Amino acid sequence: MASLRRVFRLREALMLSATRSPQSLVRSHVGPVSRFSSGHGSVDVDLSDEERRRRLHNRLLYRSRQRGFLELDLVVGTWVEEHIRGMDELHIRALMDVLDLENPDLWKWLTSQEEPPEAVRTNPVFSAIQSKVMGNLDSHAAPETRANPGQPWVRGWDDKRGMQGGPFGNQ
């Protein structure tokens, strides 16, 4: 009986929402998180008072740390934590665009395994994060341990065999 009531409520909600605009339909059923999931043309970036600024910063910081890709959680999350307090509306929108990128693509573009598209390459937040990543790679990793530009950055267990390493690869 309870499941039948839920079906009728859902039907009523759908019929009621059919008269609304598509944007209000998405917001009414998905909630305010949908504003940050894609398409920033109508995003309300309200930095007018401290509480709204704090909430927006917390949402973006959470999104940057919880991507589900450990390397990006660390790299992007740390960068956002260090820089979000000083961002203006333009940079916050640029950060939202970076956070909307797919994880595998973003990782390849940040590490220069692949050339990013023009829209990503000209994004000021992406450029800043990429320069930090490349600076860290240059200071902590020998160039011979990296893949050539445009080549996948995947190494096997025995990738150092015959390179003055032990007889068993990376051990």
Rank of each mutant, 00 (worst) to 15 (best):
A2P: 07
R5E: 12
F8L: 11
A13T: 05
A13P: 01
L16C: 07
S17E: 10
R20T: 07
Q23V: 02
V26Q: 00
V30S: 00
G31F: 00
P32E: 12
R35K: 09
G39L: 03
H40C: 11
G41P: 01
S42A: 11
V43T: 09
V43C: 06
V43L: 11
V43Y: 03
V45I: 13
D46S: 06
D49R: 05
E51T: 12
E51C: 09
R52P: 04
R52Y: 08
R53H: 10
R54S: 11
R55A: 12
R55E: 13
L56Y: 10
H57E: 13
Y62M: 03
Y62E: 09
G68H: 02
L70M: 12
D73H: 08
D73L: 08
L74Y: 13
W79P: 01
M87N: 07
M87I: 09
R93S: 05
A94R: 01
L95M: 06
L95A: 05
D97K: 09
V98D: 01
D100C: 09
L101D: 02
N103H: 08
N103W: 05
K108F: 06
T111R: 04
S112Q: 10
P117I: 07
A119C: 11
A119G: 11
R121V: 09
R121K: 13
P124N: 08
S127Y: 04
A128V: 01
S131Q: 10
K132Y: 10
K132M: 13
V133M: 05
V133R: 04
V133N: 01
N136S: 15
L137A: 15
A141M: 15
P143D: 08
E144M: 10
R146E: 02
A147F: 00
A147Q: 01
P149V: 01
P152A: 02
G156M: 03
D158A: 13
D158E: 13
D159P: 07
Q164E: 15
G166N: 15
G166T: 15
G169Y: 06
